[in-house]
Design a protein around this nucleic acid. Structure first.
Lengths: 236, 236
DNA sequence: CGATTCATTGACTAGAATCAAATACCGTGG
DNA sequence: CCACGGTATTTGATTCTAGTCAATGAATCG
């Protein structure tokens, strides 16, 4: 059982709070309609170095976050010290959509990242006048729900291999994947915490997949899906 | 590895399609505001016998379902025959909130159940005139998302004991639990498929919990949480 | 070019899955 | 009310996967 060593707890200041320094919203180019315009208008873009806390578990659930560049993950530290990652968020993704009431997942950057931060209340105020925006928000939340349900299925896959393969496919669909090559911004530990496995198992399983020719580990964080059909047959 | 034997596949017609017979919306008494009124107005209540399919995986994701009485579960049959339960839905719960696009989870009744069925399109049409309703729907979806995220955490608990205890607490919060006694409408197999465990492990774990005095299995589907603090200490 | 973090590999163990069988429960009909 | 058949659940023995502990090797950053 590993405790959450790999970030703040004993590596000193790797995870650190960062004083938000809003920048002008001169932008990368994500636009999803009126909601997006509203978010840019009332939100502020904040730059964070890698491995920096964006949201603490104790924070109020009153904000919405949109990743403009880099990668972010949400997570929760369990009572025994393990970390469970709730999700990875890549440029264009929004997190913080879950219910206002109750629990908040913490969030930290995986790489250097720029995040657009918006108060839900401000958005709701605009939403009262623009029904279209509320509908857009609903659509986003419904999509996130579908994704969460997929994760439930992925985690219910009992074998490590199924989980890893499922993860690779998910990433190849979402991340900056040129053809069959997937660029993984996260560490092995992050992957392990996402899939409910250990770092050793992730490593061994990836090796096994490479060994049987299904993938190629070009670089540590760069994996090529050599044989998609073989991978599919290993999946749930 | 168990296949999905315990329902339709070999018990003949236990899971069967049911010709919907809409009833008058004379009602149990769930009311969540304007959304609820609209749903009753444009929806139809359908009665299903136990272990009956309500939604097929191949169905379009164009409807919303509200449980009026009884219990329903959503699920997916994996390619190897295992069944993963997406969630249990008790009276007052709504399912089908996930994105319009893409996948649908199948749904079947666990007990005899009455379900209010509504076309999303019809609701959206009303929603265009009533922003409040869209907001209510958003709130519901956000809550469901939060619940799905909780499930991710539950499934990431590695030990069977943690999962079972988490499940019992979840049910005691939601189900018709009088004091410390929880009434479980679902079978052991359902619980196993929900938690990604086997039926044997569920059985053994419950026995162990009873043995150490944390719970009492009054009847097969009636469990009393004897020692909540002991249970809490076993949880994640 | 070191120092440090990150990843891989190896040996061993624990816990859940699997396979197999026995027992408890439930509704039905006598 | 009780016997019966079928299902659901429990119990037992064994196997196997992934976790744990320990150490080595590779990559990255200052």
């Amino acid at each position: 059982m590993h405790a959450y060593h790999h970030a703040s707890l004993d590596h000193g200041s790797i995870v650190r709070t960062y004083l938000p320094q809003p920048e002008s919203s001169a932008d990368p180019g994500w636009d999803d309609g009126s909601l997006d315009r509203a978010m840019r208008c009332i939100g502020a873009i904040v730059s964070y170095p890698r491995r920096t806390a964006v949201v603490h578990e104790s924070d109020a659930a009153d904000r919405l976050y949109k990743v403009m560049s880099g990668a972010v993950c949400t997570y929760k530290i369990l009572s025994d010290g393990r970390r469970q990652i709730g999700g990875f968020y890549l440029p264009g993704d929004i997190f913080g959509l879950e219910s206002n009431h109750g629990h908040v997942l913490a969030a930290e950057t995986i790489t250097n990242a720029k995040v657009l931060v918006i108060k839900k209340a401000a958005l709701a105020a605009l939403g009262n006048r623009s029904a279209a925006m509320t509908r857009e928000l609903l659509e986003l939340t419904a999509r996130e729900l579908a994704r969460a349900q997929d994760r439930v299925l992925l985690l219910s896959s009992k074998s490590a291999q199924e989980r890893i393969v499922g993860f690779l496919f998910e990433m190849s669909k979402r991340a900056s994947s040129t053809g069959n090559t997937v660029e993984l911004p996260m560490s092995r530990q992050d992957i392990a915490d996402y899939l409910g496995l250990t770092i050793e198992t992730v490593s061994r399983t990836l090796w096994a997949l490479e060994n049987c020719g299904a993938i190629e580990i070009c670089a540590r964080r760069r994996i090529s899906l050599r044989d998609r059909s073989a991978l599919t047959s290993l999946q749930v």
